[in-house]
Computed example of a mutant assay.
Amino acid sequence: MTDLLLIAVYALAAGAVVGALGLLLLRRLGGRSIAVHVAVLLVVTVAAVVAGVVTVAQAMFLSAHDLQVVVLTVLAAAVVSLALGITFGRRLAAAAMWSAQARERERQLEAGRRELVAWVSHDLRTPLAGLRAMAEALEDGVVAEPAAVADYHRRIRVETDRMALLVDDLFELSRINAGALRLALAQVPLGDVVSEALAATAPLAAHRRIRLVAAESGWPIVLGSEPELGRVVTNLLVNSVRYTPPDGTVRIEAGRDDQDAWLAVTDTCGGIPEDDLPRVFDVAFRGERARSPAPAGTAGGGLGLAIVRGLVEAHGGRVGVGNTGDGCRFVVRLPAR
Rank of each mutant, 00 (worst) to 15 (best):
M1S: 13
L5E: 13
Y10H: 03
Y10T: 05
L12W: 09
A16Q: 12
V18M: 11
L23S: 15
L23M: 14
L25D: 01
L25V: 03
G30K: 08
A35P: 01
H37S: 10
A39M: 11
A39D: 03
V40P: 09
A48E: 07
T55Y: 08
L62C: 06
A64M: 07
Q68T: 06
L72A: 15
T73C: 01
A76P: 00
A76L: 13
A78C: 11
L84N: 04
F88G: 03
G89L: 03
R90Y: 12
R90F: 12
R91H: 10
A93S: 14
M97S: 10
Q101T: 14
Q101W: 11
A102S: 13
R103C: 03
E106V: 06
R113L: 14
R113P: 06
R114H: 13
E115L: 10
E115S: 13
V117F: 05
S121R: 14
T126I: 05
L128M: 15
M134T: 11
M134W: 12
L138P: 05
D140R: 11
V142G: 11
V142C: 08
P146V: 07
A147P: 03
V149T: 13
Y152C: 11
R154E: 10
R157V: 12
R162V: 03
L165A: 14
L165Q: 14
L165C: 02
D168E: 15
D169G: 02
D169S: 09
D169K: 01
F171A: 12
E172I: 07
N177L: 15
R182E: 14
L183Q: 10
A184F: 06
A184P: 04
L185S: 04
A186W: 09
V188G: 04
V188A: 05
P189K: 02
V193E: 07
A197R: 00
L198T: 08
A200K: 03
T201S: 13
L204I: 01
A205M: 00
H207P: 02
R208W: 00
R209S: 13
P220Y: 04
P220F: 05
S225K: 06
S225I: 04
G230N: 07
V233N: 08
T234F: 02
L236W: 09
N239T: 06
N239L: 04
Y243S: 02
P246N: 07
D247A: 14
E253D: 15
E253S: 10
A261I: 04
A261T: 00
I272N: 03
D275P: 00
F285G: 05
G287E: 06
R291T: 09
A294M: 02
A296N: 06
T298G: 00
T298K: 00
G301K: 07
G302V: 03
V308R: 01
A314Q: 05
G317H: 02
V319Y: 06
N323F: 12
D326W: 08
G327K: 05
G327M: 05
V332Y: 09
